[in-house]
Write a protein that binds this DNA or RNA. Structure first.
Lengths: 82, 82
DNA sequence: CGCCTATTTTCACATACGTCGAAGTAGTTT
DNA sequence: AAACTACTTCGACGTATGTGAAAATAGGCG
């Protein structure tokens, strides 16, 4: 997970999904991060593979949201004994 | 910081320092992570540059400890709004 | 000072990784 | 079915990064 969050683009993508209204964001909502759209898709895949995000297609758009329990799990990594 | 923790060796090194007695560890205490000693030193430098660890030489040995407030800072990243 | 141990730096190299353009897949609309 | 939008995969390329061997620095001790 830390490896996935280690890339600046991915950290921004994750952060945008996490802070988006209703906790979910369409790719089109978050793809303005300074790289091409295929690259955004590549990074989102990495975040998915790392278990940080989940994706769901609803009609035309694909929605991403933070995997439930991931935030708590990460927070716990640094709260209890490191 | 996430980038620095993204490497498995570095995550182990950081974890070992964080969980060591008295909160500090000599390089010799933690250098058995499966790579050569120069590589350990290289990774510790990365962790230092990322602000995660601090080092202090006391006589023959160099002691590493987690930078104060770093754990809280990281925990906060995932507690408040993601 | 000269030698020994502990740690860091330098150098060279192989592999991993981010990036883009182009092609491919999925779904909607006409 | 054809055309259009939204997104993903493929292929290729340059750079970043992890790695070890060897040399260099730092400190302790005879």
């Amino acid at each position: 997970m830390f490896k996935a969050l280690g890339d600046p683009i991915r950290l921004r993508l994750f952060s945008q999904v996490a802070s988006h209204v209703d906790g979910e964001a369409c790719v089109c909502d978050i793809s303005d991060v300074g790289v091409s759209q295929p690259t955004v898709s590549h990074h989102l895949k990495k975040l998915r593979e790392a278990g940080l995000l989940t994706s769901e297609r609803r009609g035309t758009w694909v929605y991403y949201r933070v995997t439930p329990s991931v935030m708590a799990s990460l927070a716990r990594s640094f709260s209890i004994s490191g």
